[in-house]
Design a protein around this nucleic acid. Structure first.
Lengths: 112, 112
DNA sequence: TTGACATATTCCGATATGGGAATATATGGT
DNA sequence: ACCATATATTCCCATATCGGAATATGTCAA
């Protein structure tokens, strides 16, 4: 077995920087493949392929409009990622607090 | 070129479920490879290999203690991921709000 | 129907990945 | 020095990945 399929979960889908860029653009609103290609300066097939992956994990939805295909973000599909990292936020805040405390200590010594 | 190296950024490192599990255990505190192996029921070499990746992206640090090697989490290295998804939180909350509003509307109609 | 435009799919090649097994490299105890 | 324990590394394999190029599919317009 190689790496887990990108299509399985949002973590994998989002591991690809280009796909994150696509999502970033879509966070501004619905966009045609066309516009994404122009915006990201990527070959059209690559964009379509990335969109396919994003769609399979439920991160985007699409609808047809004339000969264009409009993609929109499905932000809720990112929640699992958020939920996972959120728990770690506490940990690094504690660390920063300790660092802060340490710096204050140093400063007091300096003053005295 | 194939997929970007897992060792490049935390997004890739964390895309692997086993590595997320390792981090989850380490979030409880420093652990020896030994203990991780027992906890996760994985072959020792795999654990060491995953730890290597996590170390290269700065997600963990290690220190020697006798013949054991203790690994500890470096939570701050997860912040880039948090920062990225955080911006989307607003979007899905808005969506949920609209859904909520819609449900209230329905309810009011029902009452009247 | 034919042609232009928009998007999706397929085929190919290079590469990185994760797992397994075996082995190497510490380090401590006797 | 020798052995046991703890961990890291290496080798090999099957497979999935991304990129590029070419091509297929779909849709509108004249």
């Amino acid at each position: 077995m190689a790496r887990a399929a990108t299509t399985l979960d949002p973590f994998n889908a989002v591991a690809e920087p280009r796909r994150r860029e696509i999502l970033d653009v879509l966070s501004e609103g619905e966009r045609a493949v066309n516009e994404l290609v122009a915006r990201l300066d990527l070959p059209q097939p690559q964009v379509s392929k990335h969109l396919r992956v994003l769609k399979e994990v439920g991160l985007v939805r699409s609808r047809s409009a004339g000969r264009q295909r409009l993609y929109r973000l499905e932000p809720l599909a990112l929640k699992p990622i958020h939920d996972w990292v959120k728990d770690y936020e506490r940990l690094w805040n504690e660390r920063l607090d300790r660092l802060d405390g340490y710096l204050r200590e140093l400063q007091e010594k300096e003053i005295s």
